[in-house]
């Protein structure tokens, strides 16, 4: 089961689909259950629980509600207005650390996860354009990443199964201005310019993703393959990350955690950095693929 956000009659609308081709309004199902409608994806994630998810799942094939052809919709990023800054894990794939070592030196294998955030009150969604600030940066890079989306308030798990607290997974790109990122000592600034958080249209509910999460992850620039990894190769997996962060930071429903990027970033390719007109495609098996256009 997948969830997405679409603008229908000018209103943000949460839709659900099993095949990404026919979809239904989540509010239509909630209405059948006599539950108040939700305004957006954040609100839905905040109010949902296992019972509601099970009900929606069973109604998709049995209950008569209006069917929508996804092709007729304009989908935005699954969470177009993030709750707060997106949490990110740096250096979480060995092969990516090796390539950053070659490009910039002194990247050690982390013993504990390294976290930073992207300040993004808006997410760049599929087919949207994004500036890479060529007047300030000559090193705009891409990072395909699995996004964990939290499903409930999470505090001090102490080893409990993190999957119980996760809502689902989405496909994201952590666009990074490498020159600015390296100049400032902390990476936050070079990753937080407007538009640099990109997210696909679909959230794959955890019920359709095998845990632990081992999925092929790729990025393409103008159809040429740049990154090709598997989320099973993370140094710190989602279970570790959610346990580690929540030991001191309470995570909230709809909080997002980007889990790091595999090798193949632009530093490793001749003329690899993003320039105006490039089409950047991000793909994660069983979740989503989406393209954004660089300006």
């Amino acid at each position: 089961m997948y969830f997405a956000s679409a603008v229908i009659n000018g209103e943000e609308t949460v839709i659900v689909s099993t095949d990404k081709s026919k979809a239904y309004k989540v509010n239509d199902f909630l209405s059948v259950c006599k539950i108040n409608p939700v305004c957006n994806m954040k609100e839905f994630i905040n109010m949902q629980n296992d019972t509601i998810i099970e009900k929606i799942k069973s109604m998709i094939n049995t209950e008569y509600v209006e069917e929508i052809d996804v092709k007729q919709l304009t989908l935005t990023a699954a969470i177009p207005k993030p709750l707060r800054n997106v949490f990110c894990v740096g250096k979480n794939y060995k092969d990516h650390i090796n390539e950053m070592n070659k490009a910039f030196g002194s990247y050690d294998l982390p013993k504990k996860p390294m976290y930073f955030t992207k300040a993004s009150l808006s997410a760049t969604g599929p087919n949207q354009k994004v500036s890479v600030y060529s007047e300030m940066s000559q090193k705009a890079d891409y990072e395909a990443e699995l996004i964990i989306i939290m499903g409930k308030q999470t505090h001090k798990l102490n080893g409990k199964n993190a999957e119980d607290y996760i809502f689902g997974y989405a496909c994201g790109n952590d666009l990074s201005l490498r020159d600015i990122q390296n100049e400032r000592g902390q990476v936050f600034y070079g990753k937080s310019f407007d538009g640099l958080f990109a997210m696909g249209a679909w959230i794959a509910h955890k019920s359709i993703i095998k845990y632990p999460v081992e999925l092929n992850i790729r990025s393409y620039v103008n159809d040429s393959l740049r990154q090709n990894g598997n989320t099973g190769d993370m140094i710190f997996d989602p279970h570790y990350i959610v346990n580690d962060l929540s030991c001191a930071i309470t995570l909230m429903p709809a909080d997002m955690i980007m889990t790091g990027s595999p090798a193949g970033s632009a530093c490793n390719h001749a003329n690899g950095f993003l320039t105006s007109g490039d089409r950047l495609k991000t793909y994660i098996e069983n979740i989503d693929e989406f393209t954004i256009i660089i300006e």
């Binding site: 949490f87 740096g90 982390p110 013993k111 504990k112 996860p113 390294m114 976290y115 930073f116 955030t117 505090h155 902390q186 990476v187 936050f188 962060l245 001191a248 930071i249 309470t250």
Partner: peptide, 15 residues
């Protein structure tokens, strides 16, 4: 935590 994690977010963001 701030030193161990290199990026400062975690050591600065305890509840």
């Amino acid at each position: 935590i701030q030193s161990e994690r290199k990026q400062w977010l975690f050591g600065k963001s305890f509840d």
